[in-house]
């Protein structure tokens, strides 16, 4: 009972503090599109069967269009497994084994390519992400610095895999991070609740929905 009250008081303090960030932010905003590839967006593909909550391609496209109208930078960070050995330490983790087992990102397949109808000529595409964290070995941080981005909005990806890892690293690198919950995939309801309602609110500034950006 006391612990719950203390926890709620902490959450209230945090919410009040984060409201100030909305007002004070002076840098640009970048929308990170994680794993925006056919393999993860096709309604009839194996990924849609695996996920209780897949990402809707039309909803993601509409959201990105709205963000472009606001002059947000759109940065695509697809997952590229071409050189990731299944025997490497990261290749042996559950997410990568799952992708390999289902043949989701077979090299040179169409499904491994970024969904072309999500990409606009003004967008930035960061190639060669080999891990869960979009910042790891990709040069993403340097790209974001050149466009003076200080706020990051994360869409696409799997909630407890690349979304969580990327959000944590973005926070470490001192970005103000917002996650758009209804444009993030999850394998189960429990993963969704655990990550979006319990864990990430302790890590990132905001877990929002698409409607927040209307």
């Amino acid at each position: 009972m006391i612990a719950r009250a203390v926890n709620r008081f902490g959450q209230w303090l945090v919410t009040r503090e984060m409201r100030g960030y909305d007002v004070e932010t002076s840098g640009a905003t970048a929308v990170l599109v994680l794993s925006g590839q056919r393999a993860f967006l096709d309604e009839d593909g194996p990924w849609a069967d695996l996920c209780q909550h897949p990402v809707s391609l039309p909803a993601l496209r509409q959201f990105l269009d709205r963000c472009r109208n606001r002059d947000y930078h759109i940065v695509h960070v697809p997952l590229d497994l071409e050189d990731v050995a299944s025997t490497s330490a990261i290749g042996e983790t559950h997410f990568f084994r799952m992708i390999e087992d289902h043949g989701l990102l077979a090299p040179s397949s169409n499904s491994a390519k970024p969904a072309s109808d999500l990409i606009d000529v003004r967008d930035i595409v960061i190639p060669a992400r080999k891990g869960l964290n979009a910042f790891s070995g990709t040069g993403l941080h340097a790209h974001l610095k050149t466009i003076t981005a200080s706020r990051i909005i994360i869409v696409g990806g799997l909630v407890n895999a690349d979304v969580d890892s990327t959000a944590r690293m973005a926070v470490e690198l001192d970005y103000d991070v917002t996650i758009v919950a209804d444009l993030i995939a999850s394998l189960t309801d429990q993963d969704r609740k655990n990550t979006l309602e319990i864990t990430l609110p302790r890590i990132v500034g905001r877990v929002a929905s698409r409607s927040t950006f209307d």
């Binding site: 042996e92 983790t93 869960l132 890892s165 993963d191 990550t195 319990i198």
Partner: peptide, 16 residues
């Protein structure tokens, strides 16, 4: 609940 969230959803993705 925080601990269970890590065990069920977090470590499943980042621990061998």
């Amino acid at each position: 609940a925080d601990h269970d969230a890590a065990i069920v959803s977090g470590f499943a993705m980042c621990a061998h």
